[in-house]
Amino acid sequence: MKIAYYPGCTLKTTAKNFETSAIAIARELGIEMVELPRWTCCGTVFSLTADDLIHHVAPIRNLIRVQEMIENGQIEDEKRVLTLCSMCFNTLKRSNLRVKENTEDLKKINDLMYREKDYRAEIEVIQLLELLKEIGFDKLKAKAKNPLKNLRVAPYYGCMILRPIEVGIDDPEDPTIQKDLLEALGAEVIDNPYKKVCCGSYQTVNNKEKVAELAYNILGHAQQEGAEAITTCCPLCAFNLDTRQKEVLKNHPDFQQMPVFYITQLIAVAFGLDNKTFGFNQNYVDPKPLLKKKGLIK
């Protein structure tokens, strides 16, 4: 099945490994992710003030591209666009909801973009985890030639796929979607209350010390519960939890570094896919020693 796919800027650069692993596992499940032509940055954060429509232009412009793909018969899933990045998902979905609920806003945005065809507000924005759940975690289990046995993983959800409630893909207080998925793949899942606590997000630009402290709490609590690795589906959470371990180590010399996976990387490992699709060279903390120790990769 062909589905429209919105990547987002970071998936083309520092989170390229998220994209390559996602495309590989989707292919394995019979899904072809067709990238939007001429997509633009979604803006990464939703415009929160009532009168600020200009920041909805980018998300809606991208949804017009999806509409065009459907009209041109380029994709088979005729109502949805797939996102991987949590922040892109949140931004696109919330803008979409706003114009679905507010036809006056939709008209204003369409009028501003008079060079584009009008957006009809019929598209739905979904995140990869939702699509995988729809396919069925039992199907993923059947594909897992290389089950993640003895690997103790703590899923980390962050904010953007959980909150606000109208956008979230799972219970905002006790999400389980990653846990269900990882258990199906044979991993030992470590639950901990920090799985939904903010990593500090864009504060990493001007307040990296605070972000490092938040990362220390999130990683430290997972470790206390026995986790050996963390999973996420947000390139900014990944940066703050993975790359900022450098700063964590500076402030807490006894801190034990731990790998941070994109959930798709672990699925690709479980599926026993070609190791080129993993993209581990882009992870700051090298996950290969852990996976080797567990006999999951050679």
């Binding site: 633009t40 940055c41 803006g43 200009i54 232009v57 980018a58 501003l112 973009m113 060079r115």
Partner: peptide, 12 residues
């Protein structure tokens, strides 16, 4: 460049 809102004014 990160401030771009995709308004397309530049193209126009």
């Amino acid at each position: 460049v990160a401030r771009c809102v995709s308004c397309n004014t530049c193209t126009k």
